[in-house]
Amino acid sequence: MKRISQLIEFVKDVASSYLMDQSIDSERMESDFGKESAQEIVDRIKNSQERLKRARNAREIDKGKEQTWKKILKEINPTPKFNYFKIFSRVAAVFIGFIGIAYFLYINKPATIIQEHSIVNEEIVLKLSNGETQIITSNGQTKIIDQKGEVIGAQIGKKINYQNNSETISKELVYNELNVPYGKTFALILSDGTEVHLNAGTTLKYPVNFLNGQNRQVFLTGEAFFKVSKDIEHPFIVESNDLNIRVLGTSFNVSSYSENKNISTVLVEGAVRLYGKDELYSEEKSKLLQPGKKAEWDKENQKITIQKVNTSFYTSWIDGTLVIEKLRFPEIIKRLERHYNIKIINNNKELDNQVFTATFQVENIQEVLESFKANYSFKYIIEKDTITIN
Rank of each mutant, 00 (worst) to 15 (best):
Q290Y: 13
P291W: 08
P291A: 07
P291R: 09
P291N: 00
G292M: 04
G292S: 03
G292K: 09
G292C: 04
G292I: 03
K293W: 15
K293T: 14
K293D: 09
K294M: 14
K294Y: 03
K294T: 03
K294D: 06
K294C: 06
A295F: 10
A295Y: 02
E296A: 05
E296C: 01
E296K: 13
E296F: 01
W297M: 03
W297C: 11
W297H: 05
D298K: 09
D298S: 07
K299C: 03
K299H: 06
K299I: 02
K299W: 03
K299F: 01
E300I: 11
E300Y: 13
E300M: 08
E300Q: 12
N301W: 09
N301H: 10
N301G: 01
N301A: 10
N301Y: 07
N301P: 05
N301T: 12
Q302R: 10
Q302Y: 06
K303T: 13
K303Q: 15
K303F: 11
K303L: 11
K303G: 12
K303V: 10
K303N: 07
I304S: 01
I304G: 00
T305W: 00
T305V: 07
T305N: 13
T305Y: 03
T305M: 05
I306S: 04
I306L: 07
I306P: 02
I306H: 02
I306G: 04
I306R: 08
I306F: 07
I306K: 06
I306D: 01
Q307P: 06
K308V: 11
K308L: 00
K308S: 14
V309D: 05
V309E: 09
V309W: 11
N310L: 11
N310C: 03
N310D: 14
N310R: 07
N310I: 07
N310A: 13
N310W: 01
N310E: 14
T311I: 11
T311Q: 12
T311R: 13
T311K: 13
T311V: 15
T311D: 14
T311W: 08
T311A: 14
T311M: 10
S312D: 10
F313W: 10
F313H: 12
F313G: 01
F313Y: 09
F313N: 15
F313D: 13
Y314K: 10
T315W: 02
T315E: 09
S316H: 01
S316A: 14
S316Q: 09
S316I: 05
S316C: 07
S316L: 07
W317Y: 02
W317I: 01
W317K: 04
W317T: 01
I318E: 08
I318K: 11
D319K: 13
D319M: 02
D319N: 13
G320W: 12
G320E: 09
T321F: 15
T321N: 12
T321D: 11
T321H: 08
T321K: 12
T321V: 12
T321L: 09
T321C: 10
L322G: 08
L322W: 12
L322A: 10
L322Y: 14
L322P: 08
V323Q: 04
V323G: 01
V323E: 01
V323Y: 03
V323P: 00
I324E: 08
I324S: 08
I324K: 07
E325D: 12
E325H: 11
E325Y: 05
E325V: 01
E325S: 03
E325G: 01
K326T: 14
K326F: 15
K326E: 15
K326H: 15
K326I: 12
L327E: 15
L327C: 00
L327N: 06
